[in-house]
Each structure stands twice: as C-alpha cells, then as structure tokens.
Nucleic acid binder design. Structure first.
Lengths: 113, 113
DNA sequence: TTGACATATTCCGATATGGGAATATAATAC
DNA sequence: GTATTATATTCCCATATCGGAATATGTCAA
C-alpha cells in the first residue's frame, strides 16, 4: 500500500502547504482562478490542479460564470480537523486558568483567607 | 518533486489515519510500545514505524526504561494545526451567537424596544 | 469562422510512502 | 554465555504525488 491519497480526506488534502495557502488566500472570498494565480504567483496549471484536489475533498466549491470559475472555501469540511485537534488545546494553552478560576471562586466563597 | 515527506511537519505526519489514532490512543498517558500494540491491535513493526515518524516531527517523545521505551504525546506540536484551522471555526459554529449576544446586549441597554 | 481569453488535462519523472516478512539490536534474567 | 523479552530496522513493491511543459477544452467577441 502507498500513502493515503490526498483526495481521501481533508487531513491529507491540507497536508500540502500550497493547499493550505490556497485555502487561506481564498478565505471567505469567492475568486476566479485568474486572481488566485495573480495573488499567489504560481502558474495556472498548478493552481488548477490544487483546486481540483480541494474540490474532490469538498474543501472548495466551484461556480461557473462565463469563462470563469469562481471558487470558494467550504469551511465545514475543516471541522473534522478542528474537532480532532481541539481536545489537545488544553495542553499548551493557559486555559489551565480555568482551573485557577475555579480555585479563585472557591477562595472568594470561603471569604476569609 | 514528490509529495511533502511525512516527516516534514505535523500536518503531514498527522495526515496518516493510523498516526492520528496513535496520538489519540496515547492521549496524556505514557505507554510502552508493548501496550500500544495491544491497544490498537497492529503488529509491532507497524507501531514502531509510525512512532518513528511521529518522533521525527516531534509529535511524540521517548523515554527509555529498561528494555522498554515509553512514548508520550508532545501536544504543543499540534498547535500549528490548531492555529491554522481555528480561524475557520466561525463558519460552522453557532458562535455567530456572539453576534447575537452583542445585539441582545444592545437591546437591553436601549431598553424600550 | 477566427481569435483571444480562462481554465483544465495530459504526459513525464523523481521521490516517498506504508505494509508485510524477516531480521537486527538492546536489555534483562538465568 | 544463552535464552527471552522489547523494540527497531531492513528489504521489497505497488502506488501516488507534485511540478513543469505542452496541450486541450470552453466561452465570449468581432
């Protein structure tokens, strides 16, 4: 067996740095390939190919208008990644402060020291 | 050029489903290869190989104790993924409710209608 | 039609992957 | 030293990948 295909799921699609850039560049805007090319400075086939992968995984949507194809991010498809990684947030965030908060609350309630 | 190597960054390392399972299985525990094998039901070389990749990217740490090697997750290395994906949360979460909250607040302040 | 513009596809090659099977290394016990 | 346990490494192979260059498709305009 080989590596999991890039089109298998959002995790694999987004492993490619350029594909992440692409998604970020799009943001909430809807852009024609044209402008993406200008924006990122890659050559057109490169952009089209990456868009194809992203479309196959459902990470972007496509709308045809005249000779153009307008692409937009389909953010919901990123949720699996978010959901998988979020539980680990507590290990690097100072949101251990939540614990501190609780302790602070208890102090207040207990009033005198 | 070929695909970005799995050992290049957390994104690529975690693209492999088994590697995600592995990380989840470890959680905050520290386990010897032994138990990981039992826990996941894969064969030992498979586990070792995946651990190797994860270690190279810094996603797990290793501690030697006797003949065993205890592995633990290095959660901070997941932060880049979290940071990249988090900005998109607003597109699928009902935390648009934040907006609603604000509007609600304004209503209250403005009192009458 | 012909041409120009917008985008997609094909062909190529170098490269790494992940699994299985077998084997190597390391550490402890006897 | 020898056996045993714990883990890592090597070899092999089918399979995708990404980029570049060239080319194909599609749509509008004159």
């Amino acid at each position: 067996m080989a590596r999991t295909p890039t089109t298998h799921d959002p995790f694999n699609a987004v492993a490619e740095p350029k594909r992440r850039q692409l998604i970020q560049a799009l943001g909430s805007k809807e852009l024609p390939v044209n402008e993406i090319v200008a924006l990122l400075g890659w050559n057109q086939p490169t952009v089209s190919k990456h868009l194809k992968v992203l479309k196959q995984v459902g990470l972007v949507g496509e709308r045809r208008v005249g000779r153009q194809r307008l692409y937009r991010v389909n953010a919901e498809r990123l949720k699996p990644i978010f959901d998988w990684v979020t539980p680990f947030e507590r290990y690097w965030t100072e949101r251990f402060e939540r614990l501190d908060e609780v302790l602070e609350q208890m102090k207040k309630k207990g009033a005198t020291t």
